[in-house]
Design a protein around this nucleic acid. Structure first.
Length: 209
DNA sequence: TATCCGATTAGCT
DNA sequence: GCTAATCGGATAG
C-alpha cells in the first residue's frame, strides 16, 4: 500500500460535529478497511448527509426518521460509529454516524477513489483488472462496499478502532466541493429537495457528475 | 403471517 | 431511459 497517502486516524471529536459539516469534511479523507488478507483504502469523493434538520424540517429521507429500531440502532449511537445496512436484498451501504448519542444522524459514503487493495477490489467486483477502469470500481455506495468487503459484519463498529476507520490524508489539497439533492430519495416529501449530497467536482470516481 | 418496497446496480433498448 | 434481480425490515391485519 502507498502508506504515504494515509495519515492519522480521525479523532472521535471530529465525528461529533453537525452532520452536513462532517459530510463535507469527509471529502478527501480516506476510508480504510483492514481484513485478514487485505488493506482496502479509498479516498472519499462523494457523501450524503442524513437525519439533520433543514430550515426547521426534519429529514424524512433518513432511516432514523421513523424511529429507533433494531436496524437503525447504530444511527442513534454517538458519532464515530459505522452503520451498514443491506439494500435491495443484494447490496450494502456504509454510513458514518455523527453527532451526539440519540441524534440519529449519519453520512452515507457514496463513492471513493480506490487507493489500495485494487487487485482484490477487481476480484470482489468480478471485473477484469486488465480491461476495466478503476473509475468504475467504487463509484457508487453498493459498489464500494462490494469492492472493499464491507458487509453487515462491519455494522456498528467503532471507527476509532483498527478494523474500519477514517484517516486524514497526509496532505490536504484545496477541494472544489459541489452539492446537489440526494440520489433516490423521491419518497421523502420534504427531504427530496435538501441539498445534502456533496462531492468533489471533476472527480472521475463520483457516481454521477 | 402477509405484503410492500427500498439511501442500487447492470444490462439492454 | 427502463427494468429485473432479490430479501430483510417495516407495517398492517
Amino acid at each position: 500500500m502507498n502508506s504515504g497517502m494515509i495519515g492519522s486516524k480521525w479523532p472521535e471529536k471530529w465525528y461529533e460535529e453537525d452532520v452536513c459539516q462532517v459530510a463535507r469534511h469527509l471529502l478527501g479523507a480516506v476510508l480504510v478497511h483492514v481484513t485478514e488478507n487485505t488493506v482496502y483504502a479509498g479516498r472519499i469523493v462523494e457523501t450524503e448527509a442524513y437525519g439533520g434538520t433543514y430550515h426547521g424540517w426534519p429529514d424524512d429521507a433518513a432511516h432514523s426518521y421513523h424511529g429507533r429500531t433494531a436496524r437503525t440502532e447504530p444511527m442513534f449511537q454517538s458519532g464515530g460509529c459505522s452503520y451498514v445496512y443491506q439494500i435491495y436484498g443484494m447490496y450494502y451501504c456504509m454510513n458514518v454516524v455523527t453527532g451526539r448519542a440519540g441524534s440519529g444522524e449519519a453520512v452515507l459514503i457514496r463513492a471513493v477513489e480506490p487507493l489500495s487493495g485494487l487487485d482484490d477490489m477487481f476480484r470482489n467486483r468480478n471485473m477484469d483488472n486488465r480491461t476495466r477502469s478503476p473509475y468504475h470500481l467504487t463509484n457508487g455506495p453498493g459498489k464500494l462496499c462490494q469492492a472493499m468487503e464491507i458487509t453487515k459484519s462491519q455494522n456498528q463498529l467503532d471507527l476509532c478502532g483498527d478494523e474500519l476507520y477514517i484517516a486524514e490524508p497526509v496532505m490536504r489539497q484545496p477541494l472544489q466541493i459541489a452539492c446537489s439533492a440526494r440520489i433516490h430519495v423521491d419518497y421523502a416529501e420534504k427531504g427530496k429537495t435538501f441539498p445534502w449530497r456533496y462531492y468533489i467536482e471533476n472527480s472521475k470516481s463520483v457516481s454521477r457528475p
